[in-house]
Design a protein around this nucleic acid. Structure first.
Lengths: 193, 193
DNA sequence: TCGTTCCGGAACTGCCGGGTTCCGTCACTA
DNA sequence: TAGTGACGGAACCCGGCAGTTCCGGAACGA
C-alpha cells in the first residue's frame, strides 16, 4: 500500500480534478502584460496593474507563472513580430522593414530601452528579447541589394535597428519616422553602387 | 526688533559658523558614484554602496544632494568625455573617436543602457546624459571626410554611437572593439567616394 | 451531491532601499 | 573656551511592491 502510494506521484498522467484553467484568463493576462510593456515600459510594470487590466486577480497570475519576470518573458514572446514583405524589389522590401522599425520607435519609445535594461538583470527576459530580435531577414534583404559578400553588410543591418532606437532615446521630440526611413534606405541603396 | 530679525534671513552674505564642508568628501562621493555607474549600471546603485565606497556616511550624501537622482546626475556630468584628437587626417581622427566608443561599449556595457532607461524616468538624469552625448565633434569630423552637405551625414554620425551600443546590448559575447571600429570607419570612408 | 480546483478581489506578509535621525567626535569661528 | 556644523557609522522609519493567503462563489469530475 505504502509503496503503491509513493510510486503513484512519480507518474501523474491523468488526475485533473476540479475546475479547469480558463484559457481566456491566460490570454487576457498576457495581452494586458504586453499592452503595459508598450505603454509604460518594463521597469514600471506592477503585477497589480496587469491583473486589473486583465480583469483578473493576482492569484490567477501566480497560478500560471512563478515570477513576474517569467510572465513578462512569455508576454514578450507572444508580441507579434512585424510582417516580412516580399516583392520583386528588395529596396521596397527594405523600406517596409525599416519603416516598421522607425514607426515603432516613434510610437513606443519606452519599450526597447526598458527591455535592454531588463535583459541584463534576468536571463529569461534576455532570451525572450533576443528571440524576438532576429535580424536575419533584414540582413537577407540588404544582401539582395548590395550583394551577400559586401563588407559592410553587418553594419548596415545593425544600423537599421540601432539608429531608430538611439534617436528615439536621445531626440524623441525631433523624431520623424518617414524621414528617418528614407535616410536609412537611401544610405544602404547608395552603398550598393 | 521683529522686523529686523525677519529681514536678516533674506540676505545671508556671510555667516558660516562651524566646521566647513570637506571638498575631499564631495569628490570621493562623486567618484564612487561614477565608478558604480560604470560597474553595476544605474538601476542597481544603492546610496549605501556609494557611501561605503567613498568612505563616507549617507548623511554626507544627503547634506549635499536632495535625492539619489540629483547625486547621480552630477556624477554623470563629472564623468570625463573622451579626448577629441585633431590631426591632419580626418579619417585618423574619426578612427580614434569611434574606437573610444567601441572600447567603452565593450568594457562597460552596463552604463549606457542603464542611463537610457533612467533618463526616461528622471528629468535631471535626462538632461545630464544629453549634455554628455554631444556628437557635434563626431559630426564635424565625418563632414571633413564626406563633405558638410552630404545627405547621409546625420545617419552616419548617429550610427557611430548607436551600433556599438546595440551590439553591446544584444551580442556582448561576440563583441570585438577593434573590428567594429574598422567596420564603421570603413563604411564612412567608402561613402565619401 | 461532494470534493477539488479554479475564479476575482481584498487583505496580508516580507523585503528592499531611499531618506532621516542620532551618536560621539572633530574642525572651525568668535 | 563655548557654540556650531560637518564627519563616519549605525539604527531607524516608511513607502512600494512582489508574492501569499483567504474569502465567497462558480465550474468541473466522480
Amino acid at each position: 500500500m505504502i509503496s503503491a502510494m509513493t510510486d503513484e506521484p512519480t507518474r501523474r498522467p491523468a488526475k485533473p480534478a476540479g475546475r479547469k484553467r480558463d484559457q481566456d484568463v491566460t490570454d487576457a493576462i498576457l495581452e494586458a502584460a504586453a499592452d503595459l510593456l508598450l505603454e509604460v515600459g518594463f521597469d514600471r510594470i506592477r503585477t497589480q496593474d496587469v491583473a486589473e487590466r486583465a480583469g483578473a486577480g493576482k492569484g490567477a497570475i501566480y497560478r500560471r507563472w512563478p515570477t513576474k519576470e517569467a510572465l513578462l518573458a512569455e508576454a514578450i514572446r507572444t508580441m507579434p513580430a512585424g510582417e516580412a514583405p516580399v516583392t520583386d524589389d528588395p529596396v521596397t522590401d527594405l523600406r517596409a522593414l525599416v519603416s516598421q522599425r522607425c514607426q515603432s520607435a516613434e510610437a513606443k519609445p519606452d519599450l526597447v530601452p526598458g527591455l535592454i535594461s531588463a535583459m541584463r538583470a534576468d536571463e529569461g527576459i534576455e532570451q525572450a528579447v533576443k528571440e524576438g530580435y532576429d535580424l536575419s531577414y533584414v540582413r537577407d534583404t540588404i544582401a539582395r541589394i548590395i550583394g551577400p559578400d559586401h563588407p559592410h553588410l553587418d553594419v548596415l543591418t545593425d544600423l537599421t535597428q540601432a539608429v531608430p532606437l538611439m534617436r528615439a532615446a536621445f531626440t524623441p521630440e525631433e523624431l520623424d519616422g518617414e524621414a528617418m526611413t528614407e535616410e536609412i534606405v537611401s544610405l544602404i541603396a547608395s552603398v550598393a553602387d
